[in-house]
Design a protein around this nucleic acid. Structure first.
Lengths: 191, 191, 191, 191
DNA sequence: TAGTAATCGAGACGGTACGTCTTGTCTTGGA
DNA sequence: TCCAAGACAAGACGTACCGTCTCGATTACTA
């Protein structure tokens, strides 16, 4: 990511980098992940294929770099001092991200690929986008609770149900985020 | 599924059908989903490629037919009259299915593909393997509770957390199925 | 060719035979020799493929049976007592056969195939359509000449030049059949 | 034929070109024209199939490029000042070419294909190998004669008879080239 | 201000899967 | 025994993409 480069030689073209990322982003929407190809990205970007292969190993890496920042932004919600409201807002953002968002589509595609491609799984594990975004809500909630759950376990309770719902192709309309927030807090504070 | 065939012509070869399903199953383990090809399946099965394309549109369909029955079996647990025990047993089976099982690997690959291939999504939605297996536990649990949740919502609460945990590449070792069962019942019975 | 058949069993269907020959004939015109297939012929004829294979080995045989009789007819000219006129008439028929005729197109296709398919070459040699038709003119001409040429050699002199002309793709318009007849008689009667 | 190539990009590999032409040549002898396939040529040449398709449309084009130069050479005979001798020598070369030669087999196959494939006919018509080689003999012969025949007509008289003889599958042994030469000159110089 | 070196776009290279097509054979039920 | 129908194993078709490899042309830094 750091743009410093070795002693001499022509420096990496930022223009080419942006062109590739944009092309990948556009093509994902236009033709879908399966039909997304390195060749197609290079041609759409007006860039040599070698240039693409020089900086990224496969389409997953390109897509990841193209959407990671957007994803982080979309999953970041402003915190108030009302935890149920904040949790609900976060879950709304979470559901919107997975179902409607551009970056979310890229994430779902990558997560799907990770199920049968170890390289993509490794790539995704370098940054736990979902976990980190949830942590901002989960940690305060845990602190004010009497729960013995780890952050990871609590996170699974918060976003696991809608995650399952969406990933298995069920309608996002039937998700009641406020109810999920309430139930999440109940799990943390009972027993 | 019914094997009756049209009036005339040579009937479908059951031998070829089994050979294809077995070949797909074997190759999934040997080379992985990404490297699984229609050509490779046909050759491994000792079957013409046309014969494969005649009965299945893509590798996902083959894999689905090859693993659906196994999946159903593996997710089916005997019921006792102790609900917490039954839920724990089911969650154990569920986690084992997604992480260790042969059929589960196929399911995960298909679920992954479904994230960016509408045809595969449709295929998977024809039979809600996870939901149906869970329903056998969820429905009794709901009946004996005062919860207003739908079966679908309750199912998401039961298997959503471990589903999220595994699909996002976290270690299955840190899943405590008995605790999950307890928390599930608490969500159903409080408020 | 003989329609008698063995002791028992269903007799060969004349209906199927005609349907195949007609289908081959039609398809030759519609799609050309290269795109003519056994499968296509069977389907067009509304006949099982096995039925086609039972009676003919390849498309060349079908085409040969379909066009041999027509060819013979088209190359047969009525004889007068004027040899130059008869030769000219025959050469006109010959040129017309090779360039415009339906059966001639089939013959040219078969002759072409025979250049690189020994089976077709054998098939064509079972009946020397061109030689036999020419013989009716060549033999009288030889008898009334002082030439020592064999019938075969004389035939080559008569139809060799226009044959070469047409087969090598030259325009048939520049063939002067009367001049060819005169020159043929000159070769036979000088020296 | 000129090897200059467009501004940029990797230049065409001469190594690959030769490998394809040699493979086609070899395979024609080994398996015959009908069994000659683009796939087989590519594999034998150790070349990608795309590389073959990039430069040639079909096996006929490859074969043509592979044999045209040889054909021209084989049909070229040194001229003396004795016309009958030269004609005889040419006819010997001509008969040898069509019956025994490697390049001649390719030419016969292409000529055959041209009878039912317009693309091959066009290809062959780009260079009249037979006509041009004959022209070197026919033109002097015409100049020293009182004949009104065109070069094309005279050529048909010279090589038409043996051409017919060979193409219709008759034995080349019965061709008397000296007699043919004499008769050719007689047609040119009588009347 | 020249030289060096890594970059760029372009496009050919050897490979290989795609999904379709035809081949010639086999297997039904019916005539 | 023949027929129409249609599935079978085999393998070529022409196209697409893979990841690599030249090309000539551009930029920077270095000497």
């Amino acid at each position: 990511m750091v743009e410093e480069h070795g002693r001499s030689g022509r420096p990496r073209s930022e223009r080419a980098r942006r062109a590739v990322l944009n092309a990948a982003d556009d093509l994902l929407v236009e033709v879908g992940y399966a039909a997304l190809t390195m060749k197609g990205i290079a041609e759409r970007a007006g860039v040599g294929r070698q240039t693409v292969y020089r900086w990224w190993s496969n389409k997953a890496e390109i897509l990841y770099e193209a959407s990671a920042i957007d994803a982080e932004q979309e999953l970041s919600v402003p915190l108030s001092d009302d935890l149920p409201d904040d949790l609900t807002a976060y879950l709304d953002a979470f559901v919107g991200f997975l179902t409607d968002s551009h970056a979310g589509a890229a994430y779902r595609a990558l997560l799907g690929e990770a199920q049968h491609d170890a390289a993509v799984a490794t790539l995704l594990s370098t940054k736990d986008i979902l976990g980190e975004s949830a942590a901002k809500l989960v940690e305060p909630a845990l602190r004010t609770s009497n729960s013995a759950l780890s952050a990871e376990q609590a996170t699974a309770h918060l976003i696991g149900p809608p995650f399952f719902h969406i990933l298995t192709g069920r309608s996002p309309a039937s998700i009641d985020t406020r109810r999920l927030a309430t139930e999440f807090l109940r799990v943390l504070n009972t027993g």
